[in-house]
Simulated scan of single mutants.
Amino acid sequence: MSVEGTETLYAEVIGDPIAQSKSPAIHGFWLEKLGLRAEYRACHVRAEELEEYFALRRKDPRWRGCNVTMPHKQAVLPLLDRIDPLAERIGAVNTVTRGEDGTLTGYNTDAAGFLEPLRPLLERTHLFRMARVLGTGGAARAIVAALAAQNVVIVLAGRDPGKARALLDELDPGGEHHVAPLAHFSEPTDFAFDDRAGCFDLIVNASPLGMAGQPPLAFDFSHAPPGSVVYDIVTHPLDTEFLQAARAAGFVTLDGLTMLIGQAAEAFGKFFGAEPPRADGDAELRRLLTA
C-alpha cells in the first residue's frame, strides 16, 4: 500500500481487485489536459488493510482523497469522520476526501454520475415518470435513491423480490414503488401500453449480468414502453447484448462509460478543486478508454 515519496498532490482509487479500474486513465487524462501538477493512482487495498490505509493517508497532506470501488463501498463507512447525507442515505461511499486537518469525508458520486446524461430529459415536465431497474446490488442502491429524488416511480426487479422490497422501503419509504422477479422480464408480454406522450420511461440494467464472465441479461423488449431510454451500467464489454438488442428494437441507449465518466467528474472537482475539461462531450476521453 505504500506510495513513493513525492511532493506532488495525488488522489487514487482503491479496491480489491483494482487492475481493471479505468479511473486512473480518466483522471490522468483530465489532469494532463488542465496541466495540473497532480497524480491519480490505483492502489490495491484488501479488506483487512482498509483501517491501516486510511490511518496512513489521513496523515499525508499530499493525499487529496480516493475513489472507492468494490468491495469496500460500505466497509469504509465506520472509518470516516463525516458522511455526506446522500451517501449516508444510500449506505455506500465511493469518494473520500481529506480536509486540511486530516478529517475524512465520504461522498457518493455514483448517483450524480448516473443522472448526468438523463438531466436534459428530467428537466422537462412529465405527466408520469417510471423506471424499470434490474438488479438489487450496491449499484442499484445509488440508482434507486437518485431516481426516487427525481419523482420517478420505480419497478425494482431482482432474483429475490423480498430483497427488492426491503431496498425500496429503506431508500424511499413513502414512495409508491413496485417489485418484480427478474425472470418476469425475460419472457414476452402482450401488455398494451397506454399513450406515453408526456411520459418518461427508463430501463436500467443495474446488475452485473451481461458483464464479461457473467451470464447475459435476459430481457424481452416487449416489456419496454414506447420511447423508453435504455441504460446499461456495465462497462466490460461496453456495447452489451442488452444495448444491442435495445437499439435493434428502436430505443435510445446509454452505456456504462456515461455513468463512469459522470461520477468521476464529480469526484475530480472534490479532489483537485477544478472542473474537468469536457467541452467535446467526452469524445476524446471515450476514444482513449475504448482503444
Rank of each mutant, 00 (worst) to 15 (best):
V252G: 08
A206G: 02
L285H: 10
G35N: 03
N108K: 00
S222W: 05
H126I: 01
A274K: 15
D239F: 04
A224L: 03
L285K: 07
G35E: 04
E12A: 11
T95I: 00
F271D: 14
E100C: 10
I261G: 04
D81R: 01
V45P: 09
T136R: 05
D280Y: 09
H177E: 13
L238D: 08
T97W: 15
H44F: 12
T103R: 15
L79I: 02
S21T: 13
A55N: 04
A166W: 10
D282R: 05
D194A: 12
E32G: 02
Y231Q: 01
R286T: 11
N67W: 08
D101Q: 08
L122G: 14
A87W: 00
S207E: 06
F221A: 02
S228E: 02
L167P: 09
H44C: 12
G281Y: 09
M1Q: 06
V76Q: 00
I233F: 08
V144I: 13
V3D: 04
N205G: 07
G213Q: 07
T8W: 01
G256L: 04
V3T: 01
R46Y: 02
T136S: 12
V204F: 10
A166H: 14
R141A: 11
S23R: 06
L217F: 04
L254M: 03
G273W: 09
S23Y: 09
A142K: 00
A206D: 03
T95E: 13
A218S: 05
D60R: 01
D201T: 10
L257V: 02
G5D: 03
P208V: 07
C199A: 09
E116S: 14
A131M: 08
L134E: 11
R46P: 08
Y107L: 11
R119D: 14
N67C: 15
H126W: 15
A87I: 00
V3E: 03
F268M: 07
A75L: 09
V96Y: 14
E49A: 12
R287E: 11
S207Q: 11
P188F: 03
G99N: 11
G99Q: 09
A157T: 15
I26T: 08
A38W: 04
T8Q: 06
A131E: 00
M211V: 01
D280K: 04
E48K: 03
A112E: 15
L289I: 10
N94P: 12
V229M: 03
D220R: 05
P17S: 09
E51M: 05
Q150T: 08
E176H: 14
G250P: 11
K73C: 14
T253Y: 04
D232W: 01
A148H: 00
R196G: 00
H178C: 14
E123M: 10
T136W: 07
P181R: 10
G138H: 08
T235N: 11
S21W: 09
L36D: 03
I83K: 00
D190L: 11
V68I: 12
A131K: 00
R62F: 03
Q263W: 02
S21F: 08
L202T: 07
V155S: 14
L134G: 12
E170P: 13
A92C: 08
R82A: 11
L288D: 12
F251I: 06
Y231G: 00
C199I: 04
G269A: 08
L156A: 12
G65E: 03
L77R: 00
R141S: 06
L217T: 06
M1P: 12
E241T: 07
P237F: 03
